[in-house]
Write a protein that binds this DNA or RNA. Structure first.
Lengths: 108, 108
DNA sequence: CAGGATCCGAGCGGATACTG
DNA sequence: CAGTATCCGCTCGGATCCTG
């Protein structure tokens, strides 16, 4: 459990998974899809996800080389629970912001 | 969404929520329940969760003072999605470890 | 008992330059 | 194109001491 949390916790990994959900993507495509991620962080996140068996990395020996990242079956199966989190977040977004504003106001 | 991820990402917050799910707890009780957390990190996590409206903090003016932390309705409602993640983690624990072992072996 | 304050080392993560 | 390498500021987080 701790393990999984550390993955989700990685802050970018979940966004990467979402970017790959529809179809496999290439490195620079992902870079463009995730506006605030740096090359370095994207590389790290991809390695982390690959290590966990969530994504597959395929290198095409073209020139220049192309690298494709795709969700594994296990990666896809994780999307269910993630969707459930997203649903919650959307449903409670307003309440969440309100709670924070209230708290911050009380501290001022 | 980013917001929620940052919460979950806080690495301890989810564990704190789980510790509070059954019944309200006091500070030192939580400290004992979460073996590897430091006082400082527990305080931070609690503040963060309070700010987000996930938990309530109640001070009893006894001597010495007692402070109780309890899930709010919103906090409880988040447990559903979290349970779904936990279920996934339990179901895929073996596959996850295997994937990691495989990856690490390939790198060696 | 519940925590704030302070100090400090380790690592996260960005920017830039370089490679196959 | 898809990275790696290096430098470096900054925050995370532990340890310790102090308070109401």
């Amino acid at each position: 459990m701790r393990d999984l949390l550390d993955h989700i916790a990685a802050k970018w990994t979940t966004l990467v998974l979402l970017a790959l959900e529809q179809e496999p993507r290439r490195f620079n495509t992902l870079l463009r899809m995730l506006p605030d991620i740096s090359r370095r962080m994207l590389t790290q996140s991809l390695r982390d996800l690959e290590r966990g068996g969530f994504i597959d990395r395929t290198v095409f020996p073209t020139k220049p080389p192309a690298v494709q990242y795709a969700l594994t079956p296990m990666g896809h199966s994780l999307m269910g629970p993630i969707r459930s989190l997203i649903g919650w977040a959307e449903a409670n977004e307003t309440a969440l912001n309100a709670a924070r504003a209230r708290y911050d106001a009380a501290q001022a």
